[in-house]
Design a protein around this nucleic acid. Structure first.
Length: 541
DNA sequence: GCTAGGCGACA
DNA sequence: AATTGTCGCCTAGCC
């Protein structure tokens, strides 16, 4: 099947002007049809759109994954497309023909999509705007990033694999010696037998199926000083995680053609409107530990005179909160570009900014995040290691300082009860129904969860809205101007580019402008930019 | 080969 | 019970 054939099929199938435009602008070797879904009003809508692909099979799109998603919402009877089997088939030329054929034969598919979508979009101009001006144009941005991929230093990963491998060997020997027998350290079940039955250590936390052995528990057990085993297992888990999930997995996903990894960004997975990333997931590359950053340093600029450039929103969720809360004090703090955690600490503890201790700042940071997640006094107490009573007073003091925040939370929950959904800054909706339940203990638990979801969705989802606008505008700039730079990744509040050195200054200026002006909020948006030869060793510019 | 559970990486 | 949203590795149990 030729490019012209595929384009011809796409033309009449896809109604949106920007998708039609995408069809005309196809500039790559092949087009593959894949499902791109869009979440509107809490419901996922799948559609089929053009996507770029360098070579058939390059990204290992599996029909199984596609069929599973279609079966989940029955927009398309995919079983007719691929038969009843659930084989893992790489989407090669043959399968491409079948997918394209199907799209051509069943012209009903997009009509059915719009049958459902149109009444909703007619009812809400804001949703239509979100759909037409953000989600649909974003498809092309995601396709661009997937097409670009990012270069990986597989040599470095190979070296790390050997190093981690020998570390694991010696840790395994040591753990078995301390345990007095050999067992599978990777099995929480077997580890539980050793720790809690054989050694008689106290059970600190339970899971559905038995005693928990997670890092928090192991840390507590280590503090008891009765055995070196917990500490060794913590270290073993850390190394094993990095080795299996990143160091050994990433090289296998490097394309032979491009020598890069090409993730898949999913637009219709996260209920809040965030993107997600898979195969490989490039939104959870380690950064917190020294060894983790070494993995991150394996993501590199493609030439010696190129750099990676990472631009991230500073405190975007707290700024969104300040915007919605209409809280003067919080907004002033951002207007003055203060250290927000230190500022909150000084106001909650009622001390001068210069007298804020690191402990006070840490507490303020915890409560700032707690607000975003809807944390309780219990949760805050636990994360700060303080009394629940003290935590409750701390929260009360926070709400006294920032009354707008409490008002925002109340308003959000009131609207949610009235409408059955919450809305983000661009009007994206998430259905949240259990906020009305009152009765049993189980319902109370569910209601508390729903209330946290409601609050968090407005903040997390609005932040996602803003960066999507920025991505569309940034790509528009890259396409219209005389740029060599390429957009590679989005990690929720961060965009990663690759760029020739002599273009860095211009790119920084353009990206900062587009991100900071994605929307006009009650508080300024701030973007920090770093560049370097790899994703770990980036310096501010 | 499939699924659930535990765990842990990220924002 | 007790802070949101993801993806993926491994084990264990089942078919």
């Amino acid at each position: 099947m030729s490019l012209e054939d595929v384009t011809a099929i796409l033309g009449p199938v896809l109604e949106s002007p920007s998708i039609a435009k995408l069809g005309q602008n196809i500039k790559y070797d092949l087009v593959v049809l894949r499902n791109h879904g869009i979440r509107v009003d809490g419901v996922r809508f799948d559609t089929m759109i053009a996507d770029y692909l360098l070579e058939p099979g390059q990204r290992n799109h599996s029909l199984d994954a596609m069929s599973q998603r279609y079966l989940n919402h029955t927009m398309v009877p995919i079983t007719e497309l691929i038969g009843k089997g659930k084989k893992q088939i790489t989407l090669d030329q043959v399968e491409l023909d079948r997918v394209a054929y199907y799209a051509a034969e069943d012209a009903d598919v997009p009509l059915r999509l719009y049958e459902i979508l149109n009444p909703l979009l007619d009812e809400s101009p804001q949703l239509r705007e979100l759909f037409d001006s953000v989600e649909i144009p974003l498809i092309e941005v995601l396709a661009e990033m997937e097409f670009n991929g990012i270069q990986v230093n597989t040599q470095l990963l190979e070296t790390m694999s050997q190093e981690f491998g020998s570390q694991l060997e010696s840790l395994t020997a040591s753990i078995h010696k301390h345990a007095g027998e050999e067992f599978n350290i990777d099995s929480p079940k077997q580890l539980s037998v050793i720790l809690f039955e054989k050694m008689g250590l106290p059970v600190i936390k339970k899971t559905k199926t038995g005693a928990s052995t997670d890092a928090e528990v192991l840390g507590e057990l280590a503090k008891l000083g009765r055995s070196d085993l917990p500490e060794l297992v913590i270290r073993y888990r850390q190394v094993a995680k990095l080795k299996s999930t990143y160091v050994d997995a990433l090289p296998q996903l490097v394309s032979e053609k491009t020598l890069r990894v090409h993730t898949a960004f999913h637009q219709d997975v996260a209920a809040t409107g965030r993107l997600s990333s898979a195969d490989p997931n490039l939104q959870n590359i380690p950064v917190r530990t020294e060894e983790g950053r070494k993995i991150r340093s394996a993501f590199i600029a493609p030439e010696s005179d190129w750099k990676l450039l990472a631009a991230d929103y500073s405190q975007i969720e707290l700024r969104v909160l300040a915007h919605f809360a209409r809280d003067g004090a919080l907004q002033q703090a951002f207007a003055d570009d203060l250290d927000i955690h230190a500022q909150v600490a000084s106001e909650v503890y009622d001390v001068n900014l210069e007298d804020v201790t690191s402990d006070m700042r840490r507490s303020a940071k915890a409560i700032n995040f707690g607000v975003i997640y809807g944390q309780s006094a219990f949760g805050l107490a636990k994360s700060l290691g303080i009394d629940q009573q003290d935590a409750a007073e701390f929260i009360e003091s926070y709400f006294t300082q920032y009354p707008g925040v409490e008002g925002f939370m109340d308003d959000t929950l009131r609207d949610c009860r009235k409408n059955g959904y919450v809305s983000t800054i661009l009007g994206r909706r998430r259905l949240v129904t259990d906020v009305r339940d009152q009765d049993s203990l189980k319902n109370k638990r569910q209601r508390n969860l729903s209330e946290r979801i409601a609050i968090n969705t407005v903040i997390q989802g609005s932040a996602a809205d803003l960066i999507k606008i920025a991505m569309i505008n940034v790509l528009k700039q890259l396409q219209t101007g005389n740029w060599t730079a390429r957009l590679l990744l989005q990690i929720h509040d961060e965009l990663v580019f690759e760029c020739p050195e002599d273009e860095i200054a211009d790119l920084r200026e353009m990206v900062v402008h587009e991100m900071e002006n994605a929307a006009e909020l009650e508080v300024p948006l701030k973007v920090d930019v770093k560049t370097g030869p790899n994703w770990a060793d980036c310096e501010p510019v």
